[in-house]
């Protein structure tokens, strides 16, 4: 069993990832992420995952969704941001 590359642990703090991304070329519309982290992910009409426009910085459920994605379509990154990321609540 090959472990997945570690995702930086985060609770939305300054050290953690700030953005979630979905690779739509990989997404198979399993519905796992939207059910696991509904504040971060939703589904397009075709079932494929979308990051919610109003999603807060990734927290544990988003990390879980990335870990559970069967095609590893979700990445959580610290995107270079010219402005401070929105404060998580």
């Amino acid at each position: 069993m090959t472990p997945r590359p570690p995702t930086p642990s985060s609770n939305g703090s300054a050290q953690g990832p700030t953005h979630a991304h979905v690779d739509l070329d990989l997404c198979i519309a399993s519905g796992i992420c939207a059910a696991t982290a509904p504040t971060h992910f939703t589904q397009a009409p075709n079932g494929q995952a979308r990051v919610r426009p109003d999603a807060p910085p990734p927290t544990t459920p988003a990390e879980d969704a990335a870990a559970l994605c069967p095609v590893e379509a979700i990445t959580l990154t610290r995107a270079p941001a010219p402005h401070p990321p929105p404060k998580s609540t």
Partner: peptide, 13 residues
């Protein structure tokens, strides 16, 4: 259909 889009009930937010 579909009921699972952006405003769908699967959302907690």
């Amino acid at each position: 259909p579909p009921r699972t889009s952006g405003t769908g009930p699967a959302s907690a937010s």
